[in-house]
Each structure stands twice: as structure tokens, then as C-alpha cells.
């Protein structure tokens, strides 16, 4: 299953769906990094609106992707987490997700544009 990575207003936007296999996750990480290198965009929004289940495997995929993108100098924001997913993640325990988050894509874009502007000043 290929995950689309869209370019919007100088920021890369991607949306993860359920049922990501190990191979899908690796492909996704590779595609994201390639896109960042190709476009020189320095913001990435990962949307998880469609995800019901964020288990420790998915949390790792999201964390790793964010850290990898960060290493290339890209700011990353995770958005669209469903309330029940947040409740489950906290009960699962620990800081499974170490990524900056926003409520929705709109707020994620605002925050990223702010961060990128700060960087440029």
C-alpha cells in the first residue's frame, strides 16, 4: 500500500492509514526522506485521522520517521489524533510518541509556518 505524500504551500503533507505492514512502513519512511531531499521543503505534517489503533509498532514507525526527517533539518508535526487513540496511548503508558502534535491539519500548518519563519529570521 503506497502512502501519498502531497506538496502544499511549501510543506509536505502525508496521511497514514490503518493496516500498515512492516514493509509499508519502511517504504513510507524512504519515500518521505526522498521527497524531503528532492523538494527541499522544510516542514512535514503527518496526519493520523484515519488511524483507530496506534500500537507500539505504529508509534515506533511515526517516531522514527519524525526523527529521520528532523535529521534532514525538517520540522515535523503529527496531527489528527482521535480522542480515543490519545486515551489508549496514555494508558499504554510512557511517552510512546515523542513528536510535536496539533489538533488538525489547519493548526499543524499554522504551527509549522511559524516554526519555519522563526528559523529563517
Amino acid at each position: 500500500m503506497k502512502i501519498a505524500i502531497l506538496k502544499l504551500r511549501g510543506i509536505l503533507l502525508t496521511s497514514i492509514q490503518d493496516d500498515l505492514s512492516d514493509q509499508d512502513a519502511l517504504d513510507f519512511q524512504r519515500d518521505v526522506l526522498q521527497k524531503i531531499t528532492d523538494t527541499e521543503f522544510n516542514g512535514l505534517v503527518i496526519d493520523i485521522t484515519a488511524m483507530d489503533v496506534v500500537d507500539s509498532f505504529m508509534a515506533r514507525v511515526i517516531n522514527d520517521t519524525a526523527i529521520q526527517a528532523k535529521m534532514l533539518g525538517t520540522r515535523v508535526i503529527l496531527c489528527g489524533m482521535q480522542p480515543a487513540v490519545a486515551l489508549t496511548l496514555i494508558e499504554m503508558g510512557r511517552e510512546l510518541l515523542g513528536v510535536e502534535t496539533a489538533l488538525n491539519i489547519d493548526q499543524a500548518f499554522n504551527r509549522l509556518e511559524m516554526l519555519i519563519n522563526e528559523q529563517e529570521v
Binding site: 500500537d55 507500539s56 509498532f57 508509534a59 515506533r60 517516531n63 494508558e91 499504554m92 503508558g93 510512557r94 510512546l96
Partner: peptide, 9 residues
């Protein structure tokens, strides 16, 4: 090499 925490979770 995972995050761990699956079973306690």
C-alpha cells in the same frame, strides 16, 4: 529493536 512496552501496555 522495537519500543518495548507491548505486554505491559
Amino acid at each position: 529493536g522495537g519500543l518495548g512496552g507491548g505486554l505491559p501496555g
